[in-house]
């Protein structure tokens, strides 16, 4: 787990280290208390996912399943095309992420590094739509996708997400922090705009790009509303849809539901643990400075 950069802490004589350690122990105890509160549901979920159908209802009384059934995890894949759901989620979220990062980075370059007449006006238009809540877009986007013949297809799941005013805004803010003298130096060195974009600005905007990619991927991986209204075909269901359907048809089989939902939670956790550093920095950068 990467540490956050050390924050300056004030040490005041008579408090903290030199003083009573009680407050420090209390802080640690508080952290532990909330930590346990955050952890317990997940621990319980693991136990439920390993129990037999009868044991799971008695779990609050036994405290631990008498027999462990790891085979529940395999059973999920037999009951529903869970692998397909996984694939769909990764496929859709992956493509949306790739496309969105590319289009947003390019647009952000145009907004932050090129001076062109009308730039501020067009950017203001982008900014203006950031205020519009997502629900306003749901209905007309549905109509547009319907009109383009993308209903009930990967296209319909991917294409509307491939552009984002927010992503453009975020990367623009990020690129504005890169000194313009670097582009100027590159221009004098003989680089054209595409080269400045790919070899100077993009590498330097990498933390911002990674943050956008993480947010975008996680958001689309968890996305529920849009697939719900767009997908009719069983083979196009993404994980959230699949889980909901699984729950409504096999809801009584708690261990299987828990095993399935636990598996669905693994990829975000892995991504988070790997890219924790960028994400924490990104949230702080994107929001506070933006």
């Amino acid at each position: 787990m990467p540490e956050q950069p050390a924050q300056p802490r004030t040490t005041i004589v008579g408090e903290g280290r030199a003083g009573l350690p009680i407050s420090r122990v209390a802080v640690f105890a508080g952290l532990t208390l909330f930590g346990v509160t955050a952890a317990v549901p997940f621990v319980w979920q693991i136990l439920m996912s390993l129990a037999t159908l009868t044991d799971v209802d008695l779990l609050t009384q036994t405290g631990f399943p008498p027999t462990l059934l790891p085979s529940n995890y395999g059973l999920v894949f037999e009951r529903v095309p869970f692998a397909k759901y996984f694939f769909n989620s990764f496929f859709v979220a992956g493509w949306v992420t790739i496309l969105q990062v590319i289009t947003c980075a390019m647009a952000a370059y145009a907004f932050s590094r090129v001076q062109w007449p009308g730039r501020e006006k067009v950017f203001l238009l982008y900014l203006g739509t950031l205020m519009i809540p997502g629900v306003v877009l749901m209905v007309p986007n549905f109509a547009v996708v319907l009109g383009l013949g993308m209903f009930n297809s990967y296209w319909g799941l991917i294409i509307p997400g491939a552009f984002s005013a927010f992503g453009t805004f975020m990367l623009r803010q990020f690129m504005l922090t890169i000194p313009t003298s670097l582009d100027e130096a590159a221009a004098i060195d003989g680089a054209g705009h595409w080269r400045i974009f790919t070899e100077v600005v993009l590498p330097l905007a990498r933390p911002g790009v990674i943050v956008l990619a993480i947010f975008c991927f996680l958001g689309n991986y968890n996305s529920f509303f849009w697939p719900l209204i767009l997908v009719k075909d069983v083979n196009l269901r993404t994980l959230p849809l699949g889980l909901l359907v699984f729950d409504s048809s096999y809801g009584r089989e708690t261990p299987l539901i828990m095993a399935a939902s636990l598996m669905a939670m693994v990829p975000p956790v892995v991504i988070f643990l790997l890219l924790n550093r960028y994400l924490v920095k990104g949230i702080q950068l994107g929001a506070v400075k933006g």
Partner: peptide, 24 residues
């Protein structure tokens, strides 16, 4: 140059964000 960089995003922006707002 700016248009070349902006075009993919702008197209999507008009079709899936700005346009739909008015349409809606």
């Amino acid at each position: 140059i700016a248009l070349a960089f902006l075009l993919p995003n702008l197209l999507g922006f008009l079709v899936f964000t700005a346009g739909p707002v008015l349409f809606s």
